[in-house]
C-alpha cells in the first residue's frame, strides 16, 4: 500500500458517498446512468470472487471489496425501486452489448491464466475501464449535469488517475513489478475522463454550471 493508492481508494469511497448523498437529498437519480451503475455491480462481483477462495490480502482489502459490492447493489435498489419514477431510461441509451461483447472477448484472449477466476478478473478490469461510457454518453446527450453529479464523476476520475502514479511507484519499489492488464486498462479508463475534467476545471470549479458547448 502506498499513499497514491490509499488516496485513490478513499476517493473511490468518496465518490460512492457523493452519489448516495445526491440520490438521497434530491430524492432523485436524475442524471445518473443506471447502465453504468449496473456495470459497476458486475465489475465488483466478477473481480472480488477471491473473497470466497481464500486468497486473503488484508482486512482493509476485504472490507473495501465487501463495501463496493454492497454499495453498488444498494445504488441499484435506490434507482430501480425506491426512486424508480425519477429514472428516465429514454436518455440512458448507450447499448450495453457494445461494452459487454468486446470486454468478454478481450478477457478470453488476454488474461494471466485461462481459468474461470482469472478470466473473470480480466473481464472485470476491461469492463471497469469502459463502464463509465453510458454515463458520459448521457452527459453528452443532455449537455449538462447537476453540480453534485459532476463531483461524483470527478472523485471517480481522481481515483482512476491516482492509480497510475501508484503503478509507477510500485514498479520502482517492487523490483520492476508490473501488471500489464491493469495498467493498460487503467490508462484507457483514465483517458476517458480527460474531456470531463476539462469542463469540470474550467466551469464547475469556477462556480459555473456544468454545461457542454452546443
Amino acid at each position: 500500500m502506498n499513499l497514491f493508492r490509499l488516496v485513490a481508494d478513499l476517493s473511490h469511497l468518496a465518490s460512492i458517498f457523493i452519489l448516495l448523498h445526491k440520490i438521497q437529498t434530491t430524492r432523485s437519480c436524475r442524471g445518473i446512468s443506471i447502465k453504468t451503475q449496473l456495470l459497476y455491480v458486475l465489475v465488483f462481483v466478477t473481480r472480488y470472487l477471491d473473497l470466497f477462495t481464500g486468497d486473503f490480502v488484508s482486512i482493509y482489502n476485504s472490507v473495501m471489496k465487501l463495501f463496493f459490492i454492497g454499495s453498488s447493489c444498494y445504488i441499484i435498489y435506490l434507482m430501480r425501486i425506491k426512486y424508480k419514477p425519477t429514472n428516465d431510461p429514454s436518455i440512458d441509451t448507450f447499448r450495453l452489448e457494445y461494452i459487454l461483447g468486446p470486454t468478454a472477448v478481450l478477457a478470453l484472449i488476454f488474461n494471466y491464466k485461462f481459468t474461470f477466476l482469472e478470466v473473470l478478473w480480466a473481464f472485470s478490469i476491461y469492463l471497469e475501464a469502459v463502464a463509465i461510457l453510458p454515463q458520459l454518453f448521457m452527459l453528452q446527450r443532455t449537455g449538462e449535469a447537476e453540480t453534485i453529479t459532476t463531483h461524483y464523476l470527478a472523485a471517480l476520475g481522481i481515483y482512476r488517475g491516482l492509480y497510475i502514479p501508484n503503478w509507477i511507484y510500485r514498479y520502482f519499489t517492487e523490483g520492476g513489478a508490473i501488471d500489464p492488464i491493469a495498467v493498460v486498462a487503467g490508462i484507457v479508463q483514465t483517458a476517458l475522463y480527460v474531456d470531463f475534467f476539462y469542463v469540470y476545471f474550467t466551469k464547475v470549479l469556477q462556480g459555473q454550471k456544468f454545461e457542454l458547448p452546443a
Binding site: V57, N61, F68, D179, P180
Partner: peptide
C-alpha cells in the same frame, strides 16, 4: 508469482 497475479489492488 509476478506481482500482476496477486491481484492485491482493488
Amino acid at each position: 508469482v509476478p506481482a500482476a497475479e496477486k491481484h492485491d489492488e482493488l
